[in-house]
Design a binder for these strands. Structure first.
Length: 586
RNA sequence: GGAGGCGUAGUGUAGUGGUCUAACACGUCGGCCUGUCAAGCCGAAGAUCGCGGGUUCGAGUCCCGUCGCUUCCGCCA
């Protein structure tokens, strides 16, 4: 080893020891004669002192040191003089007087500050990611990520789970996201796909009798990016045999409840986690991934305004729609312009308009006040619990539009009013999703979750008669408004699986070609099984308090799925294309 | 595919039609400096204002296009 200690190690106890340290020059303070170097490695920073009276040679070399040079230094640990200790540094009680120093490697001037937590253009950070990763933020986040995966591995291993790797080159399937495909050299015109998740493989492992499987699994989906979505991402993927929904929920709930305090300063809002059916979540929060750190729930006013003098309300309800509202405390003084902005937002999300009631000192103020009977207004205010200073936002439309619009307005107002506690992780389960939904474009039903999800036993008969009403044994785990994971109890009987494929309009021939291996496996004694997959980076992002997933990934891609550091994707040679039997069309 | 935001020395910003011959901080380079820790003081270098076109007597500033990054919608079984 080139170092006897790391740069975060030395304390008062080490005074008098001769040590060797190695790392990067974090900062230098050159007084001409006396030179101080803050030496950094992964573990911390230690102050080196170069005094020409102590070692003229070392001092001479030190005067040539620049930021980010890699050096090794040997010297004596000394207590810092009284009054010169640095309480902000872990090693601030001591310093190392250097008698010998060696430059292991010089460094060009970094393109941005390593030693300052200043914001830097993200494209530049990604272009020079190896430098960005030296900075405290990324070091901290990747250490956290390691702690999370380590905790998961230990927690699951202790509970008889086996970590089993599944292939990255697999068969493309038609359902779901767009596949990343890989051409085959040995089989002209044929392609592998990268897994969107190891879904079928882990189910086959259950057929194999492993009973409890998990994997920190890399997944790939060729869809457009978001702050919480990358083209390749990591899931904690797990599957269990001979279980019911409750077993899976309790396992993951236990894992997360213990994980959070073990790796972070965050607090779990509530455990056991609250549960909402899909219908309840949409009704209360206007979202299937609600942020339950604060209230501002959607309140139904439909019954109060069914005969309203405001014809829009009346007509909406006659047509089977809803009138619902949220209450934003302290926003009664919004200007016409601010109200206009909210209205625009509502329209962007599909609303025809937005009705507001401003609870001013003189009384409620609303553009539709003159259409409402006094009793009607009173009833609305009472149900909303409206107080002076509040702003009520009311939307009238079909139920899905109301949920979408008020759900978004709730998020916007919650953010403005800073209602969410940043130190809290508010997990919740969303259950009882519909199994199938009608795809208007393709004029067929398709799986909401995936086609291996088991229907409710009591809904089985509806699979042929009224597929849209079948409920699924599926569940999502959400936290702070993000979908952290999802899973289900699977279909394990061939007959049910065939009926499901029929319900989503797949012919026997298609079924055999795409999923024959799975259906066949089910004929050899498949146990009842189910599982869940959780997005690792989304979870770490929340634990780290970061605004996007890239901050917890070592080498993320841009929104356009480009790696700015390596410049992938890039062209390949004509020879490579030839071998792969591929011709590029312009 | 669509909508919004951003793009000015190495980095972060200021500059909203006229001494902008582009400013400030940090960084860099040089000088001075034996107790600093965002060291200090003095000095210097460093910018075709993302790129292309247009309007104008005059464009970093206004308009159009384009590229890059980003947020959102669509998409994400």
């Amino acid at each position: 080893m080139l170092k006897s200690h790391h740069c975060g190690a030395l304390r008062r106890d080490h005074v008098g020891e001769h040590v060797s340290l190695a790392g990067w020059v974090h900062r230098r303070r050159d007084h001409g004669n006396l030179i101080f170097i803050d030496l950094r490695d992964r573990f911390g920073i230690t102050q080196l002192v170069f005094n020409p009276d102590h070692s003229a040679d070392a001092h001479q070399i030190a005067s040539q040191l620049r930021n980010e040079y890699v050096i090794r230094a040997l010297g004596l640990v000394r207590a810092r003089p009284e009054g010169m200790r640095n309480a902000d540094m872990a090693t601030g009680d001591v310093e190392v007087v250097i008698d010998q120093v060696e430059i292991l490697n010089e460094a060009r001037e970094p393109v941005f500050h390593i030693s300052r937590e200043s914001d830097v253009d993200e494209a530049l950070r990604l272009r020079y990611r190896y430098l960005d990763l030296r900075r405290p933020r990324m070091q901290r986040n990747l250490v956290l990520r390691h702690k999370v995966t380590r905790f998961m591995r230990e927690y699951l291993s202790e509970r008889d789970f086996l970590e089993i790797e599944t292939p990255i080159l697999i068969k493309s399937t038609p359902e779901g996201a767009r596949d990343y495909v890989v051409p085959s050299r040995l089989h002209p015109g044929k392609f592998y796909a990268l897994p969107q998740s190891p879904q079928q493989l882990k189910q086959l492992l259950m057929v194999s009798g492993f009973e409890r499987y998990f994997q920190i699994a890399r997944c790939f989906r060729d869809e457009d990016q978001r702050a919480d979505r990358q083209p390749e991402f990591t899931q904690l993927d797990l599957e269990m045999s001979f279980v019911e929904r409750e077993d899976v929920l309790q396992l993951l709930e236990g894992l997360l409840t213990e994980l959070v305090p073990a790796v972070s300063d965050k607090r779990v809002l509530q455990s056991p986690f609250p549960r909402f059916t899909h219908t309840e979540a949409l009704a209360l929060y206007g979202s299937d991934k609600p942020d339950i750190r604060y209230g501002m729930l959607l309140t139904d006013l439909s019954d109060l305004v069914a005969d309203s003098g405001f014809r829009v309300f009346q007509q909406t309800i006659e047509a089977g729609g809803q009138v619902k509202a949220i209450r934003a405390p302290g926003c009664a003084d919004y200007t016409r312009r601010q109200i206009e902005e909210l209205t625009e937002l509502a329209k962007e999300h599909g609303a025809q308009g937005l009705v507001t009631i401003q609870m001013r000192d003189k009384g409620p103020h609303s553009s539709i006040a003159r259409f409402l009977a006094e009793a009607e207004m009173t009833a609305i205010l009472e149900r909303m619990g409206a107080e002076t200073g509040d702003l009520l936002l009311i939307v009238a439309d079909e139920a899905p539009v109301v949920a979408q619009v008020l759900g978004q307005l709730r998020l916007v107002m919650g953010k403005r009013l800073e209602l969410a506690d940043d130190d809290v992780l508010a997990f919740a389960w969303i259950t009882d999703f519909p199994l199938l939904e009608w795809n208007v474009d393709e004029e067929r039903f398709e799986a909401v979750h995936h086609p291996f999800t088991a229907p409710f036993d009591e809904d089985l008969e509806l699979l042929e008669s009224d597929p849209g009403l079948v409920r699924a044994k599926a569940y999502d785990i959400v936290a702070n408004g993000y979908e952290i994971g999802g899973g289900s109890i699977r279909i394990h009987r061939r007959e049910v699986q065939s009926r499901l494929f029929a319900a989503i309009g797949m012919t026997d021939e298609e079924t055999r070609a795409q999923f024959g291996h799975l259906l066949e496996a089910f004929e050899y004694g498949a146990p009842p099984h189910g599982g869940i997959a959780a997005g690792l980076a989304r979870l770490v992002m929340l634990l780290a308090g970061e605004p996007n997933i890239r901050e917890v990934m070592a080498f993320p891609k841009t929104q356009s799925a480009v790696d700015l550091m390596t410049d992938a994707p890039s062209p390949v040679s004509a020879r490579q294309l030839d071998e792969l039997h591929i011709r590029i069309q312009d």
